[in-house]
């Protein structure tokens, strides 16, 4: 099964660039990505530009409506994702817990829908 791990955190939490904690934090991400690759679990994974760069799009009566920013007005913003291949939810949870941001943010694990 495939699962997407959506990585959420609030803007002012976690190690910030320029601080001594930031280097090890990035290093941890690299190591985690390597682990996924070695286990053959990595399908895809990316970090996203900050939510301030987001545009929300809807279509109404044929006209395109755009608004600045993400849809949800929650403090926590989507910062990145991993798409992984696992045997079960237990395995997916195990990986999700290893994502460095899980220590200060939260990871939403969702199974990918398959059409057959």
């Amino acid at each position: 099964m495939q699962y997407i791990c959506l990585i959420y955190s609030a803007a002012d939490t976690g190690p910030a660039p320029g601080t001594p904690e930031f280097g090890p934090y990035m290093q941890a991400y690299q190591e985690f990505t390597t682990l996924l690759k070695e286990k053959g679990a990595l399908v895809a994974g990316d970090a996203l530009q900050p939510a301030t760069t987001a545009t929300t799009v809807t279509r109404e009566n044929g006209s395109i409506e755009t608004t600045d920013g993400p849809f949800a007005e929650t403090k926590e913003q989507l910062g990145g994702y991993y798409l992984i291949e696992c045997d079960s939810l237990d395995e997916a949870i195990e990986y999700a817990a290893k994502i460095p941001t899980a220590a200060h943010g939260r990871i939403e694990v969702r199974p990918i829908m398959t059409f057959d």
């Binding site: 099964m1 699962y3 696992c86 045997d87 079960s88 939810l89 237990d90 997916a92 199974p111 829908m113």
Partner: peptide, 10 residues
């Protein structure tokens, strides 16, 4: 069923 919660012992 959909989230793949396994039918096995932890």
């Amino acid at each position: 069923a959909l989230a793949g919660i396994p039918f096995k012992l932890p």
